[in-house]
Amino acid sequence: MTSHRLTPYLFVLPALAVYGLFVAFPILDSFRMSFLHWESPLLPPEFCGLDNFQQLATDPVFWRALGHNLLLLVGSLLLQLPLAALLAFLLHYPTWGRTVLRTAFFAPMVMPTAAVAVLWQYVYEPGNGLLTSLLRMTIDQEFSHAWLADPKTALLWIFVTICWQYTGFHMVLVMAGLSAIPTDYFEAARLDGASEWQVCWHVALPALRPTIAVSATLSIVGSLKYFDLVYLMAGGLPESSREVLATYIYRLAFDQNQGRYGYGSAVAVLLFLAALAIVTPLQARRLRCGGAERTAAVGSGGRAA
């Protein structure tokens, strides 16, 4: 291409400027702020070294929040992903209304998470919500349960909502993986007398390993990005039971004008480091395996949890 030596930089510069100002700079700035004792927007910040991090080490709310992130992650890996894979396998056979089903299962992904949260708050409404009403109709006329107000189980019901929104997404990924497997594989196995179960378990599943790795990586990265649903649905719980890391940052800094920018930034720094620590090895492995194009995008947008 007939171009000046500087031309490539001119192409990259606008993107780099916006990215630097609104993504890179804020991240570095949160490192700086995490070393500040800054408990209110009205007070001047003071340098305090690692005090914020020391305080975090003994902050039960922080550890519970981290635990909630991990629980949601384990749930999506052990329950959501297998469910998504099951649906994808079922749909892989000739099925009535296959396209309609696929479209319907994916539909919640298109909704704003805020709308999903509002909808499911009514599903879980203790008085005349959908779930309560269904149970009253079928099991016990007097049934009543404050689904989202019980600290012990609220997270479970939020997890159900997460599955409702994201299972279809992972199902579509697995479906794409399945359709990429040459049908000869299946035919050969069937000719050798394998049962359908064996075909799925011993032929399709091993061939799906890259797809499942992508799905799992998405779940792992996404598990650090939970915010909307938890913030909106767990608001009524006591402080120690309602937070994930992202909502804790928000509440420390902005809720009821707390303005604990320094302490909140310390949580943010740990969230950033956790994301980096989780993703770097996964990414490096993918790059080594030459699957970069396929999986480099796994952190995308924060929608895929």
Binding site: F25, I27, A297
Partner: peptide, 21 residues
């Protein structure tokens, strides 16, 4: 690579600094 890192980051890391910025 610098751009790729941005995909992994939970946006919530930047909530406080962006509010200041």
């Amino acid at each position: 690579l610098l751009f790729l890192v941005g995909m992994m980051i939970p946006v919530h890391v930047t909530l406080i600094p962006l509010n200041r910025l």
